[in-house]
């Protein structure tokens, strides 16, 4: 089956979904389901609304802050654990175990200590992405083919040179995939945090629109979030693929 046929097929399915959505809204009250014909014009309109833009801005800031913190600390800890066997043996089980805990469990504490505003969302996004970034980076470093390192050492490269010229390039694709996952998790974390209790942000808009039965607005905001998440994912995968071409 060629690429073109697949593309056409998916296009048709998307069309089928949209058509079903549109038609079924005749049978379902508009407080519950709003047809695409009403949602899409609204979707266009909200971008001019400064209120919406303000919330969008907050969400994006939260995402960037949490990712920045997680990336820096995660990479650092990941590299340290990657090269230092003793620490790795000690802390990897603990980190893996903490990672397995359903992340939302930490959220009430964050609400309590950091309040309802931006910081609790940043912290939540941080917690969500810190673990995968750290563990992936650590594993990437550990999994560098020992032969590659031995070759460099036999030429007389110092430990630092080996790190910069062998370990980092060799582990880069995996590290980027970890960062990509981390970024996607930051988006999820921030949105979840906002929806479960917050003052500003896209998630708050979504939750309040639903509560007020402004269903068309709810759909429009959800589409924004979906696009945001998909774009972030796509960029992450792209960067990872580019690095593999290296």
């Amino acid at each position: 089956m060629s690429h073109r046929t697949t593309f056409v097929l998916q296009f048709l399915i998307l069309g089928l979904i949209l058509t079903t959505w549109e038609l079924s809204s005749a049978y379902i009250p508009q407080t519950i389901l709003v047809p695409p014909s009403k949602v899409f014009p609204l979707f266009g309109a909200i971008w001019i609304n400064t209120n919406f833009l303000g919330h969008l801005y907050i969400t994006i800031v939260e995402i960037l802050m949490s990712f920045g913190l997680a990336a820096v600390s995660g990479l650092l800890l990941g590299f340290v654990l990657g090269v230092w066997k003793l620490l790795r043996d000690a802390y990897e089980p603990i980190l893996s175990l903490l990672y397995a805990v359903p992340s939302v469990v930490w959220y009430p504490i964050l609400l309590l200590t950091l309040g309802l505003d931006v910081m609790s969302k940043v912290a939540f996004g941080y917690i969500l992405s810190f673990f995968p970034i750290t563990l992936t980076t650590m594993n990437a470093v550990v999994n560098v083919d020992k032969v590659l390192i031995r070759v460099a050492e036999s030429i007389g490269a110092s430990k630092l040179t080996v790190f910069y010229k062998v370990i980092i390039p060799a582990s880069l694709p995996t590290i980027l995939s970890g960062l990509s996952t981390g970024l996607a998790l930051c988006v999820t974390g921030v949105i979840v945090g906002e929806m479960l209790g917050g003052i500003r942000g896209l998630g708050v808009l979504i939750a309040s629109a639903a509560t007020l039965f402004e269903t068309a607005h709810y759909f429009a905001y959800v589409i924004v979030v979906i696009i945001l998440a998909l774009v972030v994912n796509y960029i992450g995968k792209l960067l990872e693929r580019l690095s593999r071409g290296v």
């Binding site: 999820t188 949105i191 929806m195 639903a210 998440a229 998909l230």
Partner: peptide
């Protein structure tokens, strides 16, 4: 995969509506 990679919580209000 698409559904998996987005914050699925955004569908929760819709589920509640139904």
């Amino acid at each position: 995969f698409g559904l998996y990679s987005i914050p699925r919580i955004v569908f929760l209000p819709l589920i509640v509506l139904f």
